[in-house]
């Protein structure tokens, strides 16, 4: 049995400047410093995650804090007058609307 061997095709001109190993696939999700691995988020990136469903739950520890803030003698503040509720504007359907179905 003779086996035919072939050289694995390899491009001899390996010059891939298009690969940047310091960025993650699909962009710089996690920025890194040149020689290091510092995880950096600029202002806009942080704000982008502000409304994620994972960013909303109030941690129970904060409830304790707000309680502690309230329990101590509060600084005298001028009582705020209740703002007059906006006058409800009666919205009666106009005749036109009511009989539009015809």
């Amino acid at each position: 049995m003779s086996s035919t061997t072939k050289a694995i095709p390899v491009s001899l001109k390996i010059d891939r400047n298009d690969i940047n190993f310091s960025t993650s696939v699909g962009g710089t999700l996690y920025g890194t410093t040149p020689g290091g691995t510092k995880i950096v988020y600029d202002r806009n990136t942080l704000l982008q995650y502000r409304n994620s469903p994972l960013s909303k739950t109030p941690p129970p520890e904060l409830a304790h804090l707000t309680e502690a803030m309230r329990s101590k003698k509060p600084i005298a503040s001028t009582p705020t007058k209740p703002v007059n509720p906006p006058q409800p504007t009666p919205t009666k359907p106009t005749d036109e609307e009511m009989f539009q179905m015809e």
Binding site: Y41, Y49, S52, L54, S55, K56, P58, P59, E61, L62
Partner: peptide, 17 residues
């Protein structure tokens, strides 16, 4: 009060603080 180590947990604190 609290310790966090992710962007989302940071917002959980600062969205409610």
């Amino acid at each position: 009060v609290i310790t966090f180590d992710s962007v989302e947990d940071f917002w959980c604190v600062f969205n409610n603080l």
